[in-house]
Amino acid sequence: MGVNGKTPARAEDGPAILARGLSRRYDDVLAVRAVDLSVSPGEVVALLGPNGAGKTTLLRMLAGVLVPTEGTATIAGHDVATDPAGAKRALGFLSGDTALYGRLTVREVLTYFGRLHGLGRAEVAGHIERVTGLLELAPFLDQRTGTLSSGQTQRANLARTFLTDPPVLILDEPTTALDVVSGEFVYQAIRHAKAEGRAVLLSTHVMSEAELLADRIVLLVRGRVAAEGPKDALLAAHHAASLAELILRLHRAEEPA
Protein backbone atom coordinates (compact mmCIF):
# COMPACT_ATOMS: atom_id res chain seq x y z
CA MET A 1 0.00 0.00 0.00
CA GLY A 2 1.93 2.87 -1.40
CA VAL A 3 1.60 5.31 1.46
CA ASN A 4 5.28 5.95 0.93
CA GLY A 5 4.49 6.95 -2.64
CA LYS A 6 5.93 3.80 -4.15
CA THR A 7 3.86 2.14 -6.85
CA PRO A 8 4.06 -1.61 -6.68
CA ALA A 9 6.35 -3.22 -9.21
CA ARG A 10 4.12 -4.71 -11.88
CA ALA A 11 4.61 -7.58 -14.21
CA GLU A 12 5.82 -6.03 -17.40
CA ASP A 13 2.67 -5.61 -19.50
CA GLY A 14 1.46 -9.14 -18.70
CA PRO A 15 -0.96 -10.44 -16.08
CA ALA A 16 0.18 -10.43 -12.45
CA ILE A 17 -0.86 -14.04 -11.98
CA LEU A 18 -0.87 -16.45 -14.88
CA ALA A 19 -1.50 -20.19 -14.78
CA ARG A 20 -1.42 -22.43 -17.84
CA GLY A 21 -2.64 -26.01 -17.72
CA LEU A 22 -1.89 -26.32 -14.02
CA SER A 23 -2.59 -29.81 -12.68
CA ARG A 24 -1.88 -31.60 -9.46
CA ARG A 25 -2.22 -35.28 -8.73
CA TYR A 26 -2.20 -36.86 -5.25
CA ASP A 27 -1.59 -40.55 -5.77
CA ASP A 28 -4.74 -41.53 -7.71
CA VAL A 29 -6.67 -38.31 -7.24
CA LEU A 30 -6.43 -35.38 -9.64
CA ALA A 31 -7.00 -32.51 -7.23
CA VAL A 32 -6.51 -29.77 -9.83
CA ARG A 33 -7.13 -30.41 -13.53
CA ALA A 34 -5.56 -28.28 -16.28
CA VAL A 35 -6.46 -24.91 -14.80
CA ASP A 36 -5.89 -21.76 -16.88
CA LEU A 37 -6.15 -18.58 -14.87
CA SER A 38 -5.01 -15.00 -15.10
CA VAL A 39 -5.33 -11.99 -12.81
CA SER A 40 -4.37 -8.50 -13.98
CA PRO A 41 -2.90 -5.74 -11.84
CA GLY A 42 -5.70 -3.86 -10.08
CA GLU A 43 -8.08 -6.77 -10.44
CA VAL A 44 -9.71 -8.79 -7.67
CA VAL A 45 -10.60 -12.33 -8.68
CA ALA A 46 -12.54 -14.61 -6.36
CA LEU A 47 -12.03 -18.34 -6.54
CA LEU A 48 -15.27 -20.01 -5.48
CA GLY A 49 -16.00 -23.64 -5.01
CA PRO A 50 -17.21 -26.28 -2.58
CA ASN A 51 -14.88 -27.89 -0.05
CA GLY A 52 -12.40 -30.20 -1.74
CA ALA A 53 -12.71 -28.44 -5.10
CA GLY A 54 -8.94 -27.89 -5.15
CA LYS A 55 -8.86 -24.21 -4.19
CA THR A 56 -6.11 -24.55 -1.59
CA THR A 57 -4.06 -26.87 -3.80
CA LEU A 58 -4.27 -24.39 -6.68
CA LEU A 59 -3.30 -21.43 -4.51
CA ARG A 60 -0.40 -23.34 -2.93
CA MET A 61 0.93 -24.17 -6.40
CA LEU A 62 0.74 -20.50 -7.36
CA ALA A 63 2.52 -19.58 -4.14
CA GLY A 64 5.35 -21.99 -4.94
CA VAL A 65 4.75 -24.13 -1.86
CA LEU A 66 3.53 -27.09 -3.86
CA VAL A 67 5.05 -28.42 -7.06
CA PRO A 68 2.56 -28.86 -9.92
CA THR A 69 2.34 -32.24 -11.60
CA GLU A 70 1.88 -30.45 -14.91
CA GLY A 71 1.61 -26.92 -16.25
CA THR A 72 3.29 -23.61 -15.54
CA ALA A 73 2.58 -20.52 -13.47
CA THR A 74 4.09 -17.07 -13.23
CA ILE A 75 3.82 -14.42 -10.53
CA ALA A 76 4.57 -10.89 -11.77
CA GLY A 77 6.36 -12.46 -14.70
CA HIS A 78 8.52 -14.79 -12.58
CA ASP A 79 8.11 -18.50 -13.27
CA VAL A 80 7.34 -20.23 -9.95
CA ALA A 81 9.30 -23.33 -10.99
CA THR A 82 12.46 -21.78 -12.44
CA ASP A 83 12.58 -18.51 -10.46
CA PRO A 84 10.88 -19.35 -7.17
CA ALA A 85 12.68 -16.62 -5.23
CA GLY A 86 11.62 -13.94 -7.72
CA ALA A 87 8.03 -15.16 -7.70
CA LYS A 88 7.88 -15.31 -3.89
CA ARG A 89 9.39 -11.85 -3.54
CA ALA A 90 6.51 -10.43 -5.57
CA LEU A 91 3.91 -12.29 -3.53
CA GLY A 92 1.98 -11.79 -0.31
CA PHE A 93 0.29 -15.01 0.80
CA LEU A 94 -2.32 -15.33 3.51
CA SER A 95 -4.25 -18.38 4.55
CA GLY A 96 -7.12 -18.37 7.02
CA ASP A 97 -5.82 -21.33 8.93
CA THR A 98 -2.15 -20.41 9.31
CA ALA A 99 -0.91 -19.31 12.68
CA LEU A 100 1.85 -16.98 13.82
CA TYR A 101 4.74 -17.81 16.13
CA GLY A 102 2.98 -17.64 19.48
CA ARG A 103 6.06 -16.90 21.55
CA LEU A 104 7.06 -13.89 19.45
CA THR A 105 5.46 -10.44 19.57
CA VAL A 106 3.65 -9.05 16.53
CA ARG A 107 6.60 -6.73 15.89
CA GLU A 108 9.07 -9.64 16.07
CA VAL A 109 6.99 -11.76 13.70
CA LEU A 110 6.76 -8.89 11.20
CA THR A 111 10.49 -8.23 11.50
CA TYR A 112 11.25 -11.92 10.93
CA PHE A 113 9.23 -12.17 7.75
CA GLY A 114 10.46 -8.81 6.49
CA ARG A 115 14.04 -9.97 6.97
CA LEU A 116 13.29 -13.28 5.26
CA HIS A 117 12.05 -11.23 2.30
CA GLY A 118 15.50 -9.68 2.16
CA LEU A 119 14.76 -6.31 3.78
CA GLY A 120 17.27 -4.62 6.08
CA ARG A 121 16.45 -3.81 9.70
CA ALA A 122 15.76 -0.10 9.11
CA GLU A 123 13.64 -0.87 6.05
CA VAL A 124 11.58 -3.39 8.01
CA ALA A 125 10.99 -0.86 10.79
CA GLY A 126 9.63 1.61 8.23
CA HIS A 127 7.30 -0.96 6.73
CA ILE A 128 6.07 -1.99 10.17
CA GLU A 129 5.18 1.61 10.93
CA ARG A 130 3.20 1.78 7.69
CA VAL A 131 1.16 -1.40 8.21
CA THR A 132 0.64 -0.58 11.89
CA GLY A 133 -1.15 2.62 10.90
CA LEU A 134 -3.14 0.87 8.21
CA LEU A 135 -4.37 -2.08 10.25
CA GLU A 136 -4.45 -0.40 13.67
CA LEU A 137 -1.96 -2.76 15.22
CA ALA A 138 -0.53 -0.25 17.70
CA PRO A 139 -2.41 -1.50 20.80
CA PHE A 140 -0.97 -5.00 20.50
CA LEU A 141 2.15 -4.52 18.42
CA ASP A 142 4.42 -5.60 21.28
CA GLN A 143 2.17 -8.33 22.58
CA ARG A 144 3.02 -12.00 21.99
CA THR A 145 0.88 -13.35 19.17
CA GLY A 146 -0.12 -16.35 21.29
CA THR A 147 -2.13 -14.02 23.52
CA LEU A 148 -4.09 -12.30 20.72
CA SER A 149 -7.76 -12.81 19.85
CA SER A 150 -8.50 -14.47 16.51
CA GLY A 151 -9.43 -11.12 14.96
CA GLN A 152 -6.20 -9.51 16.16
CA THR A 153 -4.24 -12.53 14.93
CA GLN A 154 -5.70 -12.20 11.47
CA ARG A 155 -4.91 -8.46 11.43
CA ALA A 156 -1.33 -9.28 12.34
CA ASN A 157 -1.34 -11.90 9.59
CA LEU A 158 -2.67 -9.33 7.11
CA ALA A 159 0.08 -6.97 8.20
CA ARG A 160 2.59 -9.72 7.48
CA THR A 161 1.09 -10.23 4.03
CA PHE A 162 1.16 -6.52 3.13
CA LEU A 163 4.49 -5.81 4.84
CA THR A 164 6.74 -6.10 1.82
CA ASP A 165 4.48 -4.10 -0.50
CA PRO A 166 3.92 -7.05 -2.85
CA PRO A 167 2.26 -6.43 -6.26
CA VAL A 168 0.45 -9.78 -6.04
CA LEU A 169 -1.72 -11.03 -3.18
CA ILE A 170 -3.02 -14.56 -2.79
CA LEU A 171 -5.53 -14.93 0.02
CA ASP A 172 -6.79 -18.42 0.89
CA GLU A 173 -10.09 -18.12 2.79
CA PRO A 174 -8.83 -15.11 4.72
CA THR A 175 -12.01 -14.54 6.71
CA THR A 176 -12.45 -18.06 8.07
CA ALA A 177 -13.44 -17.90 11.72
CA LEU A 178 -13.64 -14.11 11.79
CA ASP A 179 -16.52 -11.98 13.08
CA VAL A 180 -18.03 -9.08 11.13
CA VAL A 181 -15.72 -6.48 12.65
CA SER A 182 -12.50 -8.38 11.97
CA GLY A 183 -13.75 -9.45 8.54
CA GLU A 184 -14.23 -5.80 7.66
CA PHE A 185 -10.47 -5.21 8.16
CA VAL A 186 -9.80 -7.87 5.54
CA TYR A 187 -12.32 -6.35 3.11
CA GLN A 188 -10.86 -2.87 3.61
CA ALA A 189 -7.38 -4.19 2.97
CA ILE A 190 -8.48 -5.91 -0.25
CA ARG A 191 -10.22 -2.78 -1.55
CA HIS A 192 -7.19 -0.72 -0.66
CA ALA A 193 -4.90 -3.16 -2.49
CA LYS A 194 -7.10 -3.01 -5.60
CA ALA A 195 -7.08 0.79 -5.54
CA GLU A 196 -3.30 0.69 -5.52
CA GLY A 197 -3.15 -1.53 -8.56
CA ARG A 198 -2.29 -4.79 -6.85
CA ALA A 199 -3.60 -8.06 -8.20
CA VAL A 200 -5.66 -10.05 -5.68
CA LEU A 201 -6.64 -13.69 -5.97
CA LEU A 202 -9.00 -14.62 -3.19
CA SER A 203 -10.48 -18.00 -2.41
CA THR A 204 -13.64 -18.25 -0.37
CA HIS A 205 -16.79 -20.23 0.03
CA VAL A 206 -18.71 -17.23 1.29
CA MET A 207 -20.77 -16.10 -1.70
CA SER A 208 -21.47 -12.62 -0.36
CA GLU A 209 -17.78 -12.00 0.08
CA ALA A 210 -17.12 -12.81 -3.55
CA GLU A 211 -20.04 -10.68 -4.75
CA LEU A 212 -18.92 -7.78 -2.62
CA LEU A 213 -15.26 -7.71 -3.59
CA ALA A 214 -14.54 -9.45 -6.84
CA ASP A 215 -14.34 -8.00 -10.34
CA ARG A 216 -14.45 -11.49 -11.69
CA ILE A 217 -15.41 -14.87 -10.28
CA VAL A 218 -13.81 -18.21 -11.12
CA LEU A 219 -15.83 -21.28 -10.19
CA LEU A 220 -13.68 -24.27 -9.38
CA VAL A 221 -15.55 -27.57 -9.32
CA ARG A 222 -13.82 -30.90 -8.79
CA GLY A 223 -10.46 -29.38 -9.71
CA ARG A 224 -11.65 -27.86 -12.99
CA VAL A 225 -12.58 -24.29 -13.91
CA ALA A 226 -16.29 -24.81 -14.51
CA ALA A 227 -17.21 -21.20 -15.32
CA GLU A 228 -15.80 -17.72 -15.00
CA GLY A 229 -16.64 -14.08 -15.56
CA PRO A 230 -18.11 -11.05 -13.80
CA LYS A 231 -20.92 -12.08 -11.46
CA ASP A 232 -23.88 -10.74 -13.46
CA ALA A 233 -22.58 -12.02 -16.80
CA LEU A 234 -21.89 -15.40 -15.19
CA LEU A 235 -25.43 -15.73 -13.80
CA ALA A 236 -26.98 -14.54 -17.07
CA ALA A 237 -24.96 -16.92 -19.21
CA HIS A 238 -25.95 -19.92 -17.09
CA HIS A 239 -29.51 -18.77 -16.41
CA ALA A 240 -28.91 -19.02 -12.68
CA ALA A 241 -30.56 -16.96 -9.95
CA SER A 242 -27.62 -17.04 -7.56
CA LEU A 243 -24.00 -18.13 -7.35
CA ALA A 244 -24.91 -20.82 -4.84
CA GLU A 245 -27.44 -22.33 -7.20
CA LEU A 246 -24.92 -22.24 -10.06
CA ILE A 247 -22.23 -23.95 -8.02
CA LEU A 248 -24.59 -26.69 -6.89
CA ARG A 249 -25.71 -27.32 -10.43
CA LEU A 250 -22.15 -27.41 -11.80
CA HIS A 251 -21.00 -29.67 -8.98
CA ARG A 252 -23.71 -32.22 -9.77
CA ALA A 253 -23.02 -32.01 -13.49
CA GLU A 254 -19.29 -32.59 -13.17
CA GLU A 255 -18.21 -36.20 -12.91
CA PRO A 256 -15.66 -36.99 -10.18
CA ALA A 257 -12.09 -37.26 -11.44
Binding site: V65, G86, A99, Y101, L116
Partner: peptide, 14 residues
Protein backbone atom coordinates in the same frame (compact mmCIF):
# COMPACT_ATOMS: atom_id res chain seq x y z
CA UNK B 1 1.54 -28.72 14.25
CA UNK B 2 1.24 -25.01 15.00
CA UNK B 3 0.45 -24.35 11.31
CA UNK B 4 3.18 -21.78 10.71
CA UNK B 5 5.04 -23.75 8.09
CA UNK B 6 3.04 -22.74 5.00
CA UNK B 7 3.73 -19.07 5.60
CA UNK B 8 7.41 -19.74 6.09
CA UNK B 9 7.54 -21.56 2.75
CA UNK B 10 6.02 -18.61 0.86
CA UNK B 11 9.04 -16.47 1.74
CA UNK B 12 11.74 -16.23 -0.94
CA UNK B 13 14.27 -18.04 1.27
CA UNK B 14 15.86 -21.16 -0.25
Amino acid sequence: ERRTIATLLTTPVP
